[in-house]
Amino acid sequence: MPSIVYRGVGPRIAYERRIAGLTQADLARAAGTALGTIRKIERGERGASDAVLDAIADALDIDPTRLLPDRERPDDRVHAAMPGLSAVLAAYEEPDDGPCRDLPALREAVSTTVGLRLSAQYSRIARSVPGLLAELCRALSTAPSVDRPAVARLLVDACRAADAVAFKHGARDLSARLLDLMRWAGAQADDPVVDAAVAYVRTELHFGARTYTVGLRALERALDHAPRADSADVLAARGALHMRAAVLAGRAADSAAADVHLDDARALGDRVPEGVYRGTAFGPNSVRVHEVSVAVSLGDDHVGRALKLAREWKPPRELPAERRSGFYIELGRAQLWSGRPDAAFESLKVARRIAPQHAREHRWVREDAATLRRLKRGDAESLSNFAEWCHASIS
């Protein structure tokens, strides 16, 4: 994938560096970049490639999109990745020859990619995932039989990260093809927990098509076939399916089914500590986030339940950024529906601070920002800037 060079990032980098209490030399050491490079970027004498921008963002412990000037599109590298992903999908059963790292190195690379997905770093995933998927397809085609299930599991995880990029950026056809690759790889993983994870992710098709009742039936079938054991991975896999089934039931306006699945998710969440299990966050806090989501999906009288829970509880920082951001997006919608536009805008801003790329590409953020802008047409410039940032239609 060709590198993108970002111009005009120097002032943002200098500002964030000073906020972090770092000198230019400190930042150069932390980012593994030459001091002269940092100086030239901050003075505007050169741009920053996507790799350098990522390294600087890592050193500052911030999302790289915070370093971009307003005129730059943080999703440029995402769109640049689409042809590479399409090429992988066209040849995954007969991949081209090429280098393959050993299994431990592939595990490490996939683990890094999963971490980027959980923190909603979609642009960074886009830069590396086409090559990673191609390499995993080659590894699967040449792996000895004893290693094939392990490689297949890694391919499922990498596909899930690539799908997060495609789905969030509206590339629904590409997302559907990635889900097919995930299912193909999952069938070779010889692991019922992987099967449950694939079923969990494939419900995106139903969220996108708004076929919520069909998606709910598919998840309930997956639950019928899901493993039953007392290990944390198995409990979390079942609990995650119940969480997502509850949301689908909420979107389908089936409050009875939503309550049943939430009850089952709570019971399973009480049996495992909050954590990330096979790439999915699950535990008591994740269930609470989904309680808000279900209440907002059901709407009407249920919205008060979301507001009540949010008054009593906030997602801890230990939860993945994507999930915490989602909580505030859902809360903002509940506040907007309850006639509290100022509170709703504050929630959307919190969602943006936690995971900018997740908030920017979320359909509800765009819809709600547009509604807020219409309600407060003569009001704060910050609201107009926010609406423009997330491409909200204000007409």
Score class of each variant (00 low, 15 high):
residue 1 M to W: 10
residue 4 I to C: 11
residue 9 V to N: 04
residue 20 A to H: 15
residue 24 Q to G: 09
residue 24 Q to I: 06
residue 28 A to P: 11
residue 29 R to Y: 09
residue 29 R to C: 08
residue 33 T to N: 15
residue 33 T to P: 15
residue 37 T to M: 08
residue 39 R to S: 02
residue 46 R to Q: 07
residue 59 A to W: 09
residue 64 P to H: 10
residue 65 T to R: 10
residue 66 R to V: 02
residue 72 E to I: 14
residue 76 D to R: 15
residue 87 A to H: 02
residue 87 A to W: 07
residue 87 A to L: 06
residue 88 V to M: 01
residue 90 A to D: 13
residue 92 Y to R: 14
residue 104 P to Y: 04
residue 105 A to I: 02
residue 106 L to D: 02
residue 106 L to H: 05
residue 111 S to C: 01
residue 113 T to C: 00
residue 120 A to T: 01
residue 125 I to F: 14
residue 128 S to N: 04
residue 128 S to F: 01
residue 133 L to M: 10
residue 134 A to T: 09
residue 137 C to R: 08
residue 137 C to P: 10
residue 139 A to F: 12
residue 140 L to Y: 13
residue 141 S to T: 11
residue 141 S to W: 12
residue 144 P to V: 04
residue 147 D to Y: 11
residue 153 R to P: 11
residue 157 D to C: 00
residue 161 A to P: 00
residue 161 A to F: 00
residue 162 A to I: 04
residue 163 D to C: 08
residue 164 A to G: 07
residue 167 F to G: 06
residue 167 F to Y: 15
residue 170 G to L: 01
residue 171 A to L: 08
residue 172 R to P: 11
residue 173 D to Y: 15
residue 175 S to G: 13
residue 176 A to F: 09
residue 178 L to A: 14
residue 181 L to S: 07
residue 183 R to F: 05
residue 184 W to N: 12
residue 185 A to Y: 14
residue 186 G to D: 14
residue 186 G to A: 15
residue 189 A to D: 13
residue 189 A to W: 14
residue 193 V to E: 01
residue 193 V to T: 04
residue 193 V to C: 02
residue 201 V to W: 00
residue 206 H to M: 10
residue 209 A to D: 14
residue 213 T to L: 09
residue 214 V to F: 04
residue 214 V to Y: 07
residue 219 L to W: 11
residue 220 E to V: 11
residue 221 R to S: 05
residue 223 L to Q: 05
residue 227 P to E: 06
residue 230 D to F: 08
residue 231 S to E: 08
residue 232 A to I: 01
residue 235 L to T: 02
residue 239 G to I: 06
residue 243 M to D: 05
residue 244 R to I: 00
residue 245 A to R: 12
residue 246 A to I: 09
residue 247 V to D: 08
residue 249 A to T: 07
residue 256 A to F: 10
residue 258 A to E: 02
residue 259 D to F: 08
residue 260 V to P: 06
residue 261 H to V: 07
residue 262 L to F: 12
residue 263 D to T: 11
residue 263 D to W: 10
residue 265 A to C: 10
residue 268 L to M: 05
residue 276 V to C: 01
residue 277 Y to N: 00
residue 277 Y to V: 00
residue 281 A to F: 01
residue 283 G to Y: 03
residue 284 P to W: 00
residue 284 P to K: 02
residue 290 H to L: 12
residue 294 V to C: 12
residue 295 A to T: 12
residue 297 S to W: 14
residue 298 L to G: 15
residue 310 A to T: 03
residue 312 E to C: 09
residue 315 P to E: 01
residue 315 P to K: 02
residue 319 L to K: 04
residue 323 R to I: 02
residue 323 R to N: 01
residue 324 R to S: 05
residue 325 S to E: 00
residue 331 L to D: 12
residue 332 G to I: 12
residue 332 G to C: 06
residue 334 A to I: 10
residue 338 S to N: 03
residue 339 G to M: 02
residue 341 P to I: 00
residue 342 D to T: 14
residue 347 S to R: 09
residue 349 K to V: 12
residue 350 V to Y: 03
residue 350 V to P: 05
residue 353 R to T: 06
residue 354 I to R: 03
residue 361 E to L: 04
residue 363 R to I: 15
residue 365 V to E: 07
residue 370 A to M: 03
residue 372 L to F: 09
residue 375 L to M: 04
residue 376 K to E: 03
residue 377 R to K: 06
residue 377 R to S: 11
residue 381 E to N: 08
residue 383 L to H: 15
residue 384 S to R: 11
residue 385 N to R: 09
residue 387 A to M: 11
residue 389 W to T: 11
residue 394 I to P: 10
